[in-house]
Design a binder for these strands. Structure first.
Lengths: 187, 187
DNA sequence: TGTACATCAGTGAACGCGCGTTCACTGATGTAC
DNA sequence: TGTACATCAGTGAACGCGCGTTCACTGATGTAC
């Protein structure tokens, strides 16, 4: 609640990271300006000193969530050559399934974004392509397989989060893990 | 706008099928009682003669959407032995990708349902298991592969609907089609 | 270094709006005689 | 078969509520002298 320029930066940062968590937990439409500002220990009126509108905030929050999520399931970020098997196992882990709020934002928000306008879809498209490119490299150059693997990873994670029975949910992850690890061997 | 019992049945039917379309187009939260009733050529007050609440309607609409969607991408419904390759090709067709409103409701709503309460997740879980069972039969008994195939089909369709570039979107469908058809041969 | 003041981060009341839900009402339906 | 009336499908005004956004204000910050 300070008044310095540094405080403002920190406020914006708090708003944005709260929003990035919120959209992964409840979807893009679940963000309300009032609740968000309260969570960031501010009052609603100050919001428009940071963002032009709720839609503007949503666009920034999506970017933030995608950036956060991209590193969340990687064993070690910064490793120049991400390992395919490690990524698959991490992506399809129970831990990742159970941490919607901090995990891969593509899986959390693909359904919402599929319904959104083209500019929003472009933002997520770019992140998907980055993910595919990383998997392509990890597979030693197999772009079609990488594209399929990414689709299948996302699908398995989303489906595992739907399954009400935990055994069934685990089975989804296990089946996908098994089949996707087998994919690498046929390279 | 009639007043007979038969009219009431038809009204309920109209409300429900409009809602089933609406949730697949805009998500569960996109349904508003007022707009829905207007689309069904009724006034908002009459809604509560058909459903106990908006939440009650949503549960019925999800069931309806899932039932409608299940038959949408099958070449011929009623065929006792659905063909694996035919189902994969139909599910991953551009036509299916472009008809969110009438296509598979699992793909359209999995993201929303993943965030919903357990009773809602149970409804979709049951439908996913039915889909898996059908694929299992089509594959001649390979439950793990069937589970993976269903996850991958859903993932590929969702991702293809996110991709802003049509070429990229087509590539997602093509890659998944190719890999999933290859799955059958290793049975 | 100390003071005077413009800037601007954050506050909270107020706005118009659409929402889900309730309810007194209307008039066609369908049943009892 | 014809009439009288209870039922109930559908209407539309009204409710309280939370929403996104605006704006006059407060007071700490940081700059000009």
């Amino acid at each position: 609640m300070g008044h310095s320029q540094a405080d403002k930066m920190r406020s914006r940062e708090r708003i944005l990271s709260e929003a990035a968590e919120q959209i992964r937990d409840g979807g893009l439409e679940s963000v309300s300006v009032g609740k968000l500002m309260r969570r960031a220990n501010l009052t609603h009126g100050g919001f428009y000193g940071h963002f032009a509108s709720r839609a503007d905030l949503l666009a920034h929050a999506l970017e933030r969530a995608l950036d956060d999520g991209a590193t969340a399931f990687e064993a070690k970020k910064g490793s120049t050559h991400p390992d395919y098997a490690v990524t698959v196992k991490s992506y399809l882990s129970r831990k990742h399934r159970d941490s919607r709020t901090t995990g891969c934002a593509i899986a959390a928000l693909a359904g919402d974004v599929a319904r959104a306008e083209e500019p929003v879809r472009e933002v997520m498209s770019a992140h998907i392509e980055q993910f595919v490119a990383r998997m392509d490299r990890a597979l030693g150059g197999a772009p079609e397989k990488a594209l399929f693997a990414v689709s299948a990873l996302i699908g398995a994670l989303v489906v595992s989060r739907v399954m009400a029975d935990e055994k069934q949910s685990d089975a989804v992850l296990a089946a996908a893990k098994r089949e996707l690890l087998a994919l690498e061997e046929n390279c």
